[in-house]
Amino acid sequence: MKQWFLLYCKRSEQERAVLNLDRQGVECYYPQVMINKVVRGKRVQVEEPLFPSYMFVYFDPEEISYTTVRSTRGVADFIRQGRMPRPIRPELLYGLMLNENTPEQQVKLSTLPFVKGEKLVLESGQFKGIEAIYQEPDGEKRSFMLINLLGKQVTVSLDNKEIAKK
C-alpha cells in the first residue's frame, strides 16, 4: 500500500533527487513559495522550497524498498522514528498542496514585529490554529517557527501574515 514519507535531501539537490526518484516510479512533492528577493541589485520574485532540503515521497515499500529510495542520488536519508521511516499523514500533505502558491502564501517584505521566544498562533494557511514559538527571520524575511509537526518539534518557514501573537 502506497504511503507518504519525508526525505532529507543533500543540500541544493532536491531537483536531482526528484529526477532520479521519478525514474524509479516514486512520486515526489516539495512545496514551493514565491518570494520577493533582491538579486544583483534588482527586486525579483523567485520560487523557493518551503522546506529547503526536505521532500515528501509517495510509494509502496513492498514494491520499492526503503534502501532503493534512500540510495538515490540527491537523497541523504529518510526522516525516521526509531529504525523505520515514519509514514506522514496524507491530510497534512493535501493541505499543503491545496494552499501552495495561493495569495496568502506570497511573502511581503516587511519588518518583523516578533521577539525570539515569543509564543504565537498561526492565523491562516495550512498551519492555521497551530501554536508556534518565533525563532528568527531568514534572509527572505520569512519567519522560522518551531512547531509541533509530525509528532515532534521541527522548524518551518512561514509568511508573517499567517502569524498572530498569543
Rank of each mutant, 00 (worst) to 15 (best):
L120S: 05
T102N: 03
L21T: 01
F127R: 03
Y58P: 02
E27R: 15
V33D: 05
T155P: 08
V46R: 01
V107S: 05
Q81Y: 05
G41R: 05
L146D: 04
I147Y: 05
T72H: 03
G125L: 01
L150K: 05
S124F: 08
E162P: 10
Y30H: 13
Y66G: 08
G151T: 07
S71L: 14
V44F: 01
I64C: 09
V115L: 13
E140D: 13
D77E: 15
K152G: 01
Q135T: 10
N160E: 14
T68P: 07
R86L: 07
R142Y: 05
F59I: 07
P61T: 10
I35M: 07
G41L: 04
K108Y: 06
R142E: 02
F114M: 06
K37A: 15
K119W: 09
E104N: 01
E118M: 10
Y134G: 02
G74C: 11
Q81R: 00
V33L: 09
P137R: 11
E131M: 09
S124T: 12
V38C: 03
S71F: 13
N99T: 02
K119P: 01
E162I: 09
Y30G: 03
D77N: 15
S143A: 13
Y94K: 13
F51I: 04
F114C: 07
R83M: 11
E162Y: 12
Q32W: 08
V154D: 02
L146C: 10
Q126L: 13
K37M: 11
E162M: 14
E27Y: 15
K152N: 08
F127M: 12
R83T: 10
M84G: 14
E63S: 14
P85R: 02
G139D: 11
I133P: 04
I133G: 01
L98W: 04
L50H: 02
G117F: 11
Y134H: 05
V156Q: 07
E140F: 12
V44P: 01
R23M: 14
S110A: 14
A132W: 05
L92T: 01
L150N: 00
V115T: 13
V44K: 07
E62Q: 15
L50A: 02
I133A: 05
L122N: 00
S157W: 07
T111L: 12
T72Y: 00
K108N: 09
L112D: 08
P90M: 06
T72E: 09
M34Q: 09
P137L: 07
L158H: 06
V107R: 03
F114P: 08
V107G: 04
S71K: 15
A164L: 12
P113L: 04
V107M: 03
Q153D: 12
S53G: 03
E62K: 15
K161S: 11
E104F: 01
Q105K: 00
P61A: 11
M34T: 02
V156M: 09
T68C: 15
R43Q: 07
G82E: 01
E100S: 00
S65Y: 11
D22V: 13
D159K: 11
L158Q: 01
E47N: 04
I133L: 12
E118A: 10
Q153N: 15
L21R: 00
M145D: 02
Q135L: 12
Y29T: 06
